[in-house]
Design a protein around this nucleic acid. Structure first.
Lengths: 235, 235
DNA sequence: AAGAGTATTATGTATGACATAATAAAGTTA
DNA sequence: TAACTTTATTATGTCATACATAATACTCTT
């Protein structure tokens, strides 16, 4: 047996706590029984008895499930299955103040990646109504002289609509999560370079392409539109 | 006051439990003190005393922080600050078996978005060594006749390397998270359409572009490379 | 039969106790 | 003195019990 194999073996000895096991147990139970949303699971004391552990352990395990968005606990009612919201969990830790700088920058980049990459989904799923709405939003675009908060608000509205067009709820939620971080990185002095407020492809330009262009064109236009941000990242 | 405003107000009445408050309190404490990784926080009993709640509540709150990846608890040592791993939290709930079908499909899409969108970061940050490594990986590409598991393994290796080239750890972790889901959706009968094993831009083609082409070219090539997947999603 | 009041129930909180593992301290041997 | 072993300490992990609280079910009154 090699050293590496030994270590592997050593690491794999069961170091998990009781709560860990109970948690795994419960998750397994949930997926085995194929429970529907709204179904309720056994009471804490029942679980404690049937699994042979204290209610404390059960409670901690249930709390984890709750944090995972698998269940929701109500007094008297007990715990019921809920549609798991993967990003609900994340939203807690996605706090600019608790994340280190490197991670913050990386999240900033992640947003750029998303917006460029989602072009195909926008072009595939955009409707007549979406385009009309986009045009409306663009029409309301604040003047360059107006308050910064207005401009940011408008930015969010426009790009938020783009996410909506993808008809991908997960992506939309993800964006909502990234937003405060993006904002934070953008406005705090985290990025060395200054903001160059050159005008590249405008929102209007993007809408035109969404209406008449192709996915490929949209990708390129979006890349150009985001040039200000990219310029701050790359040398 | 409008109905909506009323409801807003109504929802905002403090319905949070003690644990919620303590949790918020602790998070605030951590960010205020600007604690470094490795620093330890007060013991459970101390916290319980100073905040005037039971140890039970403290423990539940600490467990949440632990799930957020903010702290790590060791016996005797107490709890210490850790570099928050935002996706560590997610990995638990990112279980194909507990996610509903719609979410699974959306995650499938998310991966496609990422791979197309990250072209700029690849082109910006790729090194000579990366390209050599990519070439090596491509050279090892299994024959079309070989076992499917080999091909999948190779896929993961190649695309994993691409994520690595972005030098974005967060993105890489995110991909690692998405991987099992992607795999699950791909192989389970979740997508209506069959897999069309037409050959589009190959891995080798992608490497060529990374070596000699532009970000724009890479985006288009990647889109083409992923056509098999897109075809299964779009009608 | 509708409403008010009461009982029940399951989670939320509090407390105290012991188990366990990691560390520190003390002691032992070369 | 240094290295090793044993013992003590400490903080988290687990357990048990009791009471608080809120949501539901039940009963009684009118």
């Amino acid at each position: 047996m090699t050293i590496a194999a030994l270590k592997e073996n050593f690491n794999s000895i069961d170091t998990s706590s009781l709560v860990d096991k109970v948690e795994a147990n419960l998750v397994q139970l949930l997926q085995e029984r194929k429970l529907k949303v709204g179904d309720s699971i056994p009471k804490e004391v029942e679980l404690a008895e049937s699994l042979g552990v204290s209610r404390t352990v059960i409670r901690e395990a249930l709390m984890r499930l709750r944090m995972m968005g698998l269940i929701d606990s109500k007094k008297k009612k007990g715990s019921v299955i809920t549609s798991p919201d993967i990003f609900g969990t994340l939203s807690k830790s996605m706090n600019p103040h608790v994340l280190d700088q490197d991670t913050l920058k990386e999240i900033f980049e992640l947003r750029l990646v998303l917006e460029i990459g989602m072009a195909d989904f926008i072009m595939e799923r955009v409707t007549r109504e979406d385009i009309e709405e986009l045009k409306l939003i663009v029409a309301e675009e604040p003047e360059f002289s107006e308050k910064l908060s207005f401009q940011i608000e408008h930015e969010i509205k426009f790009h938020g609509k783009l996410y909506e067009i993808t008809r991908n709820e997960t992506m939309k939620k993800f964006q909502k999560l990234l937003l405060p971080v993006f904002d934070y990185v953008h406005s705090s002095g985290l990025l060395s370079k200054e903001v160059v407020v050159k005008k590249y492809v405008s929102h209007k330009g993007l809408v035109d392409i969404i209406e008449h262009g192709s996915a490929e064109m949209l990708r390129n236009a979006m890349r150009n539109h985001l040039e200000n941000h990219f310029a701050r990242i790359f040398d």
